[in-house]
């Protein structure tokens, strides 16, 4: 494994001593040249897992190894500098993550300029190259983030991360804000880069249908827990966990006739709060198949078929 988390935990403390169990004992590794898709409901802890994995949050428990080497539980500035040329992250929020006072050129070039100790001006050609690779124009260089649509900003974030040619890329919902044709372009671009740069990726998304095209393996999170893990195609077409099954069935199909005939059951209820979680299966309250023991005991992630890991008492 290039990077591997073991029983990784991230709790946030709230006032009154309560705790948000954002990531609770997640074990997940990414091999060299591998793309792992991480999907799950909003608030299930995907972003927190990605950030804790690469040291942007202090760990509350568990450990992370990169190329076999144990990473510090709490990062200092030097650790980040050391890591910056190997690991990059594309952030979920295309609005908040770009400095509004910098031009697109400065935003994309900054990291590389610092790393290579070169002036911004010397990097112009390289910036233009990456800008065009992500489908923007050279004449966007002198513009500011607020002059771009959400999808255009997302591509600026992708160019900024890729220009340093990292080994591991954490992509946090890189395509959710994009329309389908640009999504397909970005997915294809990331696929090409994976092949040509030998990139490894954690690809976070809440929509499984696109993820299957990019990922070798897919991981599904629910309320801080990893509930299913397996080869992407296999998991997508034969989901085993009841939550994954509902997630795939709820996906609207681009076919009006099919949608008019649709009669499947809606998964009811809100995702419960990750504060002060009970010890039982996290999905029990919404699961159409739940039995008594689902409310008593938390199921462990087990290999139920070769390569297929599921956390459910019924399997």
């Amino acid at each position: 494994m290039l990077i591997e988390a073991t029983a990784l935990r991230k709790f946030f403390s709230l006032s009154g001593g309560r705790q948000v169990h954002a990531v609770d004992e997640v074990s997940l590794g990414i091999a060299e040249h591998e793309v792992v898709g991480l999907v799950g409901e909003s608030g299930s802890g995907k972003t927190t897992f990605g950030k804790t994995l690469i040291g942007l949050h202090d760990k509350s428990g568990g450990e992370v190894r990169y190329r076999g080497e144990l990473l510090p539980a709490r990062y200092g500035a030097a650790d980040f500098r050391k890591q910056a040329s190997e690991i990059q992250m594309i952030f979920q929020d295309p609005y908040g993550s770009l400095n509004p006072r910098m031009t697109i050129f400065e935003i994309i070039a900054e990291g590389l300029a610092i790393r290579e100790g070169r002036s911004l001006a010397a990097l112009r050609d390289k910036v233009v190259y990456w800008l065009e690779r992500v489908g923007l124009h050279a004449d966007h260089l002198s513009r500011y983030p607020h002059e771009f649509s959400g999808g255009q900003r997302q591509r600026v974030g992708i160019a900024r991360a890729l220009i340093v040619e990292p080994k591991l890329l954490i992509c946090d919902e890189p395509i959710s804000a994009l329309d389908v044709s640009v999504q397909a372009q970005v997915v294809q671009l990331l696929g090409e880069l994976q092949a040509s740069m030998g990139l490894s990726m954690l690809f976070i998304a809440h929509d499984l249908s696109m993820v299957r095209y990019v990922s070798n393996r897919m991981a599904v999170m629910y309320l801080g827990s990893l509930i299913e893990l397996g080869p992407a195609e296999d998991l997508y077409f034969r989901p085993l966990h009841p939550y994954t099954q509902l997630l795939i069935a709820s996906n609207p199909e681009p076919d009006p006739e099919h949608e008019r005939q649709r009669q499947d059951q809606l998964i009811s209820g809100e995702i419960p709060s990750p504060v002060d979680l009970k010890a039982h299966c996290r999905f029990a309250g919404r699961c159409p198949k739940a039995e008594a023991r689902c409310f008593e005991e938390r199921p462990a992630l087990r290999e139920v078929l070769p390569g297929r890991l599921v956390a459910c008492h019924l399997l």
Binding site: G40, S250, P252
Partner: peptide, 13 residues
Amino acid sequence: TALDVTIQAQILL
């Protein structure tokens, strides 16, 4: 766009 498909289905309904 920011919601997962199970919650999306509820909002659309």
